[in-house]
Design a protein around this nucleic acid. Sequence first.
DNA 1: TGGACTTCGTTAAAAATTTCACGATATTAT
DNA 2: ATAATATCGTGAAATTTTTAACGAAGTCCA
Lengths: 213, 213
Amino acid sequence: MKKISKKTIERAFVYIRTLKSLLKDKEDYISSQELADILGTTDVQIRKDISYFGKVGIPGKGYEIRELETTLEKFILQKNIVRVVLFGVGNLGTALLKYPEFNKDRIKIIAAFDRDNRKIDKKINGVKIYSLKKVSSVIKKEKVDIGIIAVPKECSQNVANLIVRAGLKGIVNFAPVSIQVPDDVTVKNIDFSIEFLALFCNSNVAKAKQKNL
Amino acid sequence: MKKISKKTIERAFVYIRTLKSLLKDKEDYISSQELADILGTTDVQIRKDISYFGKVGIPGKGYEIRELETTLEKFILQKNIVRVVLFGVGNLGTALLKYPEFNKDRIKIIAAFDRDNRKIDKKINGVKIYSLKKVSSVIKKEKVDIGIIAVPKECSQNVANLIVRAGLKGIVNFAPVSIQVPDDVTVKNIDFSIEFLALFCNSNVAKAKQKNL
DNA sequence: TGGACTTCGTTAAAAATTTCACGATATTAT
DNA sequence: ATAATATCGTGAAATTTTTAACGAAGTCCA
Ligand SMILES: NC(=O)c1ccc[n+]([C@@H]2O[C@H](COP(=O)([O-])OP(=O)(O)OC[C@H]3O[C@@H](n4cnc5c(N)ncnc54)[C@H](O)[C@@H]3O)[C@@H](O)[C@H]2O)c1
Ligand SMILES: NC(=O)c1ccc[n+]([C@@H]2O[C@H](COP(=O)([O-])OP(=O)(O)OC[C@H]3O[C@@H](n4cnc5c(N)ncnc54)[C@H](O)[C@@H]3O)[C@@H](O)[C@H]2O)c1
């Protein structure tokens, strides 16, 4: 069996999300072409991706939506729930705590941590906010998978160190700085500014601007 | 001159950000290897990327930090300010309005729009919130480049339509759905759940979990 | 000043990803 | 039942991206 690429796995999650929303419709089947139209990609890309997960399509007809959805989901998540903890309950952190889609997507925020004493022991959306002293004990007890960094950028390396020391192997970093971690820890940086700037440069946006001036 | 790839442009923004933070230090020069260590990448990747922007390095010494920073910045942004408008001033939208890094990164939120009458005409962090009726007029007057979708997913296609009709060519979509737009409009989807789930699958995180069970 | 050493910039090779082309297979209509 | 049609699955080709290799160019120190 061939290894499934990162790109394919990412797209698989998009497929899953889309298929789930299609379940409500009256149609039972969808073709790679129709799915491609919805997602703005190509039918070949979709068939190629799906082929890594098995043969579930029906030539001449397409994919049974429900079957494809469960096939993909079982294959890549195996009924797991991804358990995360949040560091920093400020503007962004609070929004994350209130984001209802995480639960639907089987991502569970187990606990939050903040330095600000006024926030400690409060709950937001059912998630308790702890002092940083509790990091190690909470993480050990709760079988946490991933740590989210949503603290000011000056503190993000410190928090990353805490996360690593607690034994987590995955970090999502929203702070606009690079953090250093051991090789066996994976960091995913989400940097809004860069997304905006890159979109500006990589698309027709910049061209449109030039015309207007 | 060769075309610069999207990946290179994205990384260039990371380099710029890092170089700016290094300006405060006492060192004037940095080698590709040192920068790679900071960013968790390789020296070759960095030299390759930089080579698209010109020859600025000094063999045996490295890059002058300030010079490299200005070279990259001039090349890809040409002193532009990226002008954006926000749709949806809820949990996420409010956090975005309060995010101070956008200004530092030359991204300016010109205006926000919301459906909720109680929010209209209020200001957050100096940015005025308008009724949806004003979309077209504000966008036309203000030379906007990009629209941000931070409304509930059920409304995101509608808002996308508004954005397209107003003539914008770039959309950042935070809602966890795919939106359909004409070919000349570029959409960047930022889907937190997928980032988390993909990190979980693509890294050591899942393996660590298996061991623990 | 010269020679050892560093680090850049670039061409070539390797790896990863996407796209193409088409045979195989199920469907649908006659 | 058969022909026409639609759509899947996949090996091979094309493209893109990363990595390797190394000559060129400047640095640094004795
Ligand atoms: N606001 C946004 O929309 C946005 C967008 C992208 C990225 N970010 C980044 O996310 C991070 C948080 O942004 P924010 O707007 O929520 O900031 P914020 O100032 O509103 O919140 C920061 C929170 O972190 C807490 N904190 C500070 N130091 C801490 C530490 N060492 N350990 C634990 N908690 C600590 C503070 O008490 C506060 O509650 C920043 O790095 C920011 O650059 C924010
Ligand atoms: N909260 C998060 O951390 C988070 C994270 C990732 C993605 N998202 C996505 O971002 C979007 C917004 O999330 P949120 O948590 O801020 O939701 P929210 O409910 O707090 O805010 C939504 C806002 O949009 C406004 N609105 C509704 N329909 C509108 C319309 N047609 N035009 C303009 N404004 C409209 C509402 O009045 C409200 O102010 C959602 O699609 C959500 O899935 C949120």
